[in-house]
Every structure is written in structure tokens, then in C-alpha cells.
Design a protein around this nucleic acid. Sequence first.
DNA 1: CCAATAGTGTCTGTTAGACAATATACA
DNA 2: TGTATATTGTCTAACAGACACTATTGG
Lengths: 243, 243
Amino acid sequence: MPPRKSDSETHDFARPLTTVDILIFTVIDDALKLLLVQRPSVADEPFPGLWALPGGFVDIDRDADLEACARRKLRDKTGVASPYLEQLGSWGSAARDPRGWSATHAYFALLPADGVAPAKGANAADVAWFGVDDPQLARKRFAFDHAAILRAGVERLRSKVEYTSLPAYLLAEPFTLPQLQRTYEIVLGRPVDKSGFRTRMLAADFLAEVGIVESDSNRPPMGYRLKDRARPVLFPRTFSPRG
Amino acid sequence: MPPRKSDSETHDFARPLTTVDILIFTVIDDALKLLLVQRPSVADEPFPGLWALPGGFVDIDRDADLEACARRKLRDKTGVASPYLEQLGSWGSAARDPRGWSATHAYFALLPADGVAPAKGANAADVAWFGVDDPQLARKRFAFDHAAILRAGVERLRSKVEYTSLPAYLLAEPFTLPQLQRTYEIVLGRPVDKSGFRTRMLAADFLAEVGIVESDSNRPPMGYRLKDRARPVLFPRTFSPRG
DNA sequence: CCAATAGTGTCTGTTAGACAATATACA
DNA sequence: TGTATATTGTCTAACAGACACTATTGG
């Protein structure tokens, strides 16, 4: 990787590699899961066989901006077009990629497990969902600095769930309040009081009723959808200060 | 800017330009200020004469990682070695820099106005503090997409001040509770109740008494320092839900 | 009627917000 | 003693958390 000293004086700097990585979260079997890909075992590919976040290089010919790049990779990997997507942060250093100084822009996406059939695409030996609290995951070694990025992403999600409506993006519409409450409990890892939960959700005024929805038996629940899918709601207080 | 198609097959991508920009906040004359630099009027330099955030290219030979790069630029510009520094986010697109596809990693720093003498350094025609609510600032045109980054930074700071101890980093130690309260009021742009403020700060248990500090006259106040400068404290609730 | 889930009501301890009162300095 | 700032105390309305109760379906 020779330094490039050919262009104009003003940007006479060797350019770092630029990538985008995505943390794709969903809820399956009452557990918060994360989509990971296995690095291919091919010459020239770093970290062969290790697991990594889905992602890759920015393609300056195809990607208008960073978010477009993230959405493209998300579409390739899951087929989902427009889930909730938020920038997590960026990680860049001389050491994180053996191919040279590199910086990655990390995003996280929330989507309902529904019709998602993960695709390996090119550049991946395998692809699978892993429970974020699965001890199997903690023991795993990861490519690049993806272990740290993953920790930061889970921490950010858990922390924001305390005072935002983010879990709603993990459900297909219409959803019911008991389903939403269950989703909060799964992400937070602790039970939440039913009455207080309902009061809080309805007071935040971000849900629209769409009529009674059928269920297996028992009393049929009210179905809801988000009034505005574009941005989540912030609650004025966190959930249980007593934790 | 020709595409580079020479290296190995696996990273056969033209590389975006990579920069780091910093929002440097402080409080001067009872107002929240931001340090800006004026772009030089030189051939090959984009946006000549416009104001911009201090920053520049990552130097892969000098900067071990992104944060080190940010701290280097901060030191060059202000002489301050270790203020509070937090990553704000990244902005990357084909359009933001006329020299080509570029991505910037934005940080924001909080520091006491004290002994800071802003230095132009190279690559800046001028450097100055601007009040973030100064109408003069709103009318200004900015280089790159720095107007958007600036808005995001001010919004993030104001939002986090509602439930964190961040304003403490804008004061030199030791500081008093009335000073800290004044700083909160300046950043938030509204008055805060004295009694509630004190209760809240002391309950959060992040301040250590360092003894009475002298003042011009009247009752001498207690001086405080941060117990842990490394990380700010999160309060369980926002300030005035009644806004 | 019973079981199971959805949804509402009630009570109580805590606390934020408003504001009043006290404390300590200097003139 | 008066004034200015620092610090503490009091009162009250609002509300979260806990939990009991009602509602609506199917068997």
C-alpha cells in the first residue's frame, strides 16, 4: 500500500479504506437476534472463517452517500427495503484491518423477523442470526474490531429502549400493546408493569388504532400502527429508575 | 480523480477522501460559542473564504486512530490537550466535497474558555468564536456540508444537556453550583429552579467538594470538581418536562 | 362456569417544581 | 444593619409502581 503523493498539494494524503457495516436486529423466538456473516476462506481476504457484521466497501460509483450505501447492503442481505436505520458511529484506525488504515461507518437497523430470508450474497461463507445474549456469541472471535462495534450497538439499543419507542420497529404492523410490551421486555431483559406500560405508550401519542385484530382465542386485542414511521418518540423519563 | 483498479481483487474500490472535523464549544460572555475557521483563498482549495469547522484529512502516518486525529487537530487549534471529546457522527457523500467522494468523522469538544488562544495554524485565513444563536451565524454560508453538521452538533449538545452532566466540562475546576447552574441555563436557553437544580446535582453524586472558594463579596460558595472526568453522568429524568 | 388474555381502576409513596426562609459574607 | 449571594426547608400537585379488578372471548 504505497503512499500516494501525486495529486494536488492540498490533499496529498494516502487515503484510508472506507467501509460501512450494519447491525441488523430483530426478535425471533422471544429473543433479540443479530445477523452475522462468516468471512470467506479465500486468499487476500482478511480474517477467513471468522464471523463479522455484514458490510463492505463504499462504492463511490453506486452509493450517493453513506446511508444509501448502508441501505444497499441491507437490501442485499435481507431483502428489506426501508427498515428503521440509525447511524451508530464510526471506527477507524491503522490496526483494525490488515490491508491498511481503514475507517468503517456503522449503522444499526431494526426490522420485524417476518419475511426476512437472509442471503449470503457474495463475500460470505455463511449467514445466521445469533441471540445477543447467547453465551455462544460471547465466546466467538470476530473479524476486525467487530466485537467492540457489536457491544456498542447492543448497549446503544438497550439504552435507547429505556426512553424511546424503538421496539415498535421490531414488529410488523398492525401490532398489539401486549406484543409491544413483550418486545420491550425482551430487549430490556426484565418484566414491565402492564398498566404503567399502556398508560405510557398511549400518553406518548405515537400509536394509531387500526381496529380489533384477531388472535387465537380469548379476548381480541386492539391493533395499532405507528403514526409516523420516520422518527421514533422520546419519552420524558426512563422506564424503571428502581432497576 | 481516476478510479484505482490496481490492488487486489478484494478491495478494488476507489477510496473516498477521509477527514475529521471538530465542533469546539465553550462559554464566553454568558453565551455558548463555537470555534470556526475561515477557508484560505488559495487555488486548489475548495470554498475559499467561507467559514468551516476546524478539521482536515486523516494522516495515516501520524494518527493511530480517528480519536487521536481529532485530539491532534484540537491541540493544534486551541492548545488544549484533553478536553471532553465525543463522537458526533459521520457525513459522507459524492457531493459534499468538489474534490470527490468524501466522508468526514465529526467530533465535538467541550472546554472552559480559560486559557484558550485560538491559533489559525496552516490552512486557515482566520479563526474566531461565534455564538451559536448569533443571527450572524445563521445568515452565514458554510463550506462543505458544515451547516448541517453544525446544526446536528448544537442539537445533540442541547438535547444531552437535559439529562447529563455535560455542562460541567465547560467550566474550569473548581467551580461552584451557581456557576454550574448558570452554565446549564446558558446552554438550555431557559432559567432553571435553584433548589431543584442543587438537589439534582448532589443526588447524582458526581461532584466532590474541594472547600470554600473565594468570590468578590457576599457569602463564599463551595467549590467542586468532578469525581470522574472520564465520563459524564446520566440523570434518570430530563430537566423540565413542562417546557 | 372456567380459563385465558385484554384492558381499566385504585391506592400510595415519591418527588419535581414553586417559593419561602435562613446563612454568611462585605459595606 | 442592609444588601447580595449561597444554601436549605416546606408545601403540594402530579405521577410511577404495585396490584386488584373488570371485560371479552372460547370451551
